[in-house]
Design a protein around this nucleic acid. Structure first.
Length: 743
DNA sequence: CTCCTTTGTCTTTTT
DNA sequence: GACAAAGGAG
């Protein structure tokens, strides 16, 4: 037997060899499920002679998809190009690109992200005179999205809503929203799945084409699929029934966006002949870490009972740092990482996990101060930044002028004297004639309907038409250069001459790089193709393994990853679990948080360090909290007493509350054992902090490396520092942003 | 029409 | 505390 099968345990082997018929694999954390899926695909191709073209493998994130493709190709020893290894969303996009004309869209549709959705909803509310203070756009978006997750169409929603004041309102907005999207030739994220299902249902011949093509289907992270996604795969799998789903109900953490744990139970109903295989041996973590995880998750009532076990050693005790504030927390993380490095670990072995993105800040500052390379994984999406969205809006306008949201976004960016008045005039024409926004500009300009802003609108229209002309002749990145040039966007940024503007230009350069690499890698590069790739990708940083850095990451994004040393930060009641879950009447909300904690703990291979802070700034207010109930569910004998902190006792009774025995005085709380720029910012009340370096000093910058301070100018609110860097030349920057460190 | 100030909202989590 | 949206002055 082949080596890649030989190394598997019996259950894993069974799963890999079971290629025909429906298969449900219940795989605990760290039980090698990714290996099973990839080896199974390799086995299909190599031993069973299945063509890669017949394979559809669905993963949850683009990163996971790329990784799976790489691993499969490594095993198969060939290009698995014919196989579709992708997320639900990108698989559906590919299908819709071929056939969406059959359901009334153009095949070059655009994809709306949450911001675009919000813009559309906002306009609808204005039109319907809905007070967005009482009914938030977000609320409508949530309602519509949940409906789509359950495949409830706007028509169905209207029927169900009748009689209910609130639901009727939602129904009206939902219906109008879908109309608007169609008019704009756009899909939102949920639509990608919903409309593909619609396509399959309306056109059985198309469905059959895909049933014939994808005879072998697998779905990773099955516990996180929603109803629409489940229907999508089961439609394709219906004919040949070769569908393998892998999931773990304990790791279901996306209920909030419609994930339906019921899909695990439903699987055996929809596919009655399904075989069920359990993978319960954990290869990842030490016994202690696994014990901790098991003791936490066992408090959930709604779960399939299972016993995850390991042959690994007990390993190190779990460390618990209970500190006074988030700055100390971050500094203790940093010093522990330094210890790990001294012991021979690499920075890549270490990751800081947290519940909310906001927590990354304090950590980030501590890493900067300590000069330790780090990388925020996920976080504020690259593609959500203003400058990126602006450039993309131009490209979208050029690609598909039916996209009103894009056109309206850039009509006055950079400023060209086309404000609200002009936009309203155009919109009136568009509404009257029931045409899209750009067409209304065109008509109005030709017929001279606009009066004063008419000339400016004409210029705008001509510019877009020129760019369209160019788009058909030059390459993508050349087009982007031309857009930046002709629109004056770049010039405006350059004129600003600030550090922020500089970063924006760098971000745009990054986008152009991305375009170049897209052009190099895509079979048939096109503007639409690029826009599509970009709209479905969560973060630009594709995990470069070559450099050494600490990962800062939310627990949600850490799912599916593993690290030797894991710091689980901010384990306090109110933060993790969040207050909303603690107060919720629905007890499954707290269970979801607990599953999240379980996911976090099981990311760790060797060392788990849990940190909690007594006080923390949340929304500009100081919150006082006790140690997370999830930490208290871990048996005390697995936790090493923290010698640096007198408050944490090893006796369970004392360790329970976690509050300081006496009320900490103000001085005590704000005592700063380590320098903290954030703390300084707060207490200097507007006064800029003194610099630790002077002209002629040698300083280090996080990104630019080391250099010599050439000049310091007191710019009022901040110092303007000019530095001659060894590698990147002279840069001018503001002291508070640059965070320079004397060396 | 644009710039500046003030006000209000937000913090779950992602495709 | 940070940022976007709304409102007011020029």
């Amino acid at each position: 037997m082949e080596a890649y099968i030989e190394i598997l345990n019996n259950m894993q082997k069974e799963a890999v060899l079971c290629t025909e018929g429906p298969l449900l694999i219940l795989a605990g954390a760290g039980s090698g499920k990714t290996r099973v899926i990839t080896n199974r695909i390799a086995y299909l191709i190599k031993e069973k002679g299945v063509s890669p073209k017949s394979i559809l493998a669905i993963t949850f994130t683009n990163k996971a998809a790329a990784e799976m493709r790489e691993r499969v190709e490594g095993l198969v020893g060939m290009d698995a190009g014919g196989a579709w290894i992708s997320t639900f969303h990108s698989a559906c996009v590919r299908i819709l690109r071929m056939y969406s004309h059959l359901i009334g869209y153009d095949n070059n549709f655009t994809i709306y992200d949450t911001d675009d959705q919000k813009t559309v909803i906002k306009n609808i509310c204005k039109k319907f005179e809905i007070d967005t203070k009482r009914f938030k756009e977000k609320w409508f978006m949530g309602q519509i999205s949940s409906a789509k997750d359950e495949l409830i169409s706007e028509g169905q929603f209207e029927l169900d809503a009748s009689g209910d004041f609130y639901l009727e309102k939602v129904a009206r907005v939902y219906t109008e929203y879908q109309k608007e999207l169609k008019r704009n030739n756009a899909f939102d994220f949920d639509d990608l799945i919903v409309k593909t299902v619609e396509l399959f249902k309306q056109h059985p011949d198309i469905l059959e084409r895909f049933q014939e093509r994808f005879r072998y289907i697998s779905v990773d992270e099955y516990q996180d699929t929603n109803t629409a996604q489940f229907v999508f795969v089961s439609l394709i799998a219906k004919k040949y029934q070769n569908i393998c789903v892998v999931g773990d109900d304990d790791q279901s953490i996306y209920k909030f966006r419609g994930a339906n744990i019921g899909n695990i139970l439903n699987f055996e109903k929809v596919f009655p002949k399904a075989k069920v295989i359990r993978l319960e041996q954990n290869y990842r973590s030490t016994q202690n870490i696994l014990d901790a995880a098991n003791n936490v998750i066992k408090n959930n009532k709604n779960r399939k009972a299972k016993k995850l076990w390991t042959e690994n050693d007990a390993g190190a005790m779990i460390k618990l740092f209970h500190v006074e504030n988030s700055y100390v927390e971050a500094d203790r993380v940093v010093s522990q990482i330094k210890e790990f490095v001294d012991e021979g670990y690499k920075l890549n072995d270490c990751a800081c996990l947290y519940r909310t993105n906001a927590q990354s800040r304090a950590l980030e500052e501590a890493f900067l101060r300590a000069n330790i390379p780090y990388k925020i994984v996920g976080g504020v999406n690259f593609y959500q930044r203003k400058e990126i969205k602006d450039v993309l809006a131009y490209l979208k306008t050029i690609d598909n002028a039916r996209d009103d949201v894009a056109v309206r976004r850039i009509i006055n960016v950079p400023k060209r004297g086309l404000g609200a008045a002009a936009v309203n005039a155009v919109q009136r024409v568009a509404d009257d004639r029931e045409i899209n926004f750009f067409a209304a500009i065109d008509d109005g300009v030709n017929e001279g309907l606009f009066g004063k802003p008419g000339e400016k609108l004409r210029e705008f229209r001509n510019m877009i038409e020129d760019l369209k002309e160019s788009a058909s002749q030059i390459s993508l990145h050349e087009l982007m250069d031309e857009v930046l040039e002709k629109t004056g966007y770049l010039k405006e940024l350059e004129a600003e001459n600030t550090v922020e503007a500089q970063t924006r230009i760098e971000n745009i350069d990054e986008l152009i790089n991305k375009a170049v690499s897209y052009e190099d890698s895509a079979d048939d590069p096109s503007l639409s193709g690029f826009l599509e790739e970009v709209s479905l990708i969560a973060d630009i940083d594709s995990w470069s393994a070559d450099s050494d850095y600490v990962s800062l990451i939310t627990v949600h994004s850490a799912k599916g990853l593993e690290f030797t040393n894991v710091f689980l930060c901010g384990m306090e009641d109110g933060l993790f679990p969040m207050n909303a879950a603690i107060c919720s009447e629905d007890e499954t909300d707290l269970e979801e948080e607990r599953r999240l904690a379980y996911v976090a703990i099981t990311r760790a291979k060797k060392n788990l360090i849990i940190t909690a802070s007594r006080m923390r700034m949340v929304r500009g207010e100081t919150m006082v909290s006790i140690i997370s109930r999830f930490v208290r569910e871990i048996p005390v004998d697995l936790i090493e007493p923290d010698r640096e902190n007198i408050y944490v006792a090893s006796k369970p009774s004392e360790y329970n509350g976690g509050l300081p025995s006496k009320r900490a005085s103000k001085e005590e709380f704000f005592r700063k054992p380590y320098a903290s720029s954030a703390a300084e910012k707060k207490f200097s009340s507007g006064e800029k902090a003194a610099l630790e370096y002077k002209e002629g000093d040698r300083v280090a910058h996080m990104k630019f490396g080391e250099g010599i301070v050439a000049k310091i100018v007191d710019g009022g609110r901040d110092y303007e520092v000019t530095v001659d860097f060894d590698d990147v030349g002279t840069k001018k920057m503001f002291a508070s942003f640059a965070k320079l460190k004397k060396v």
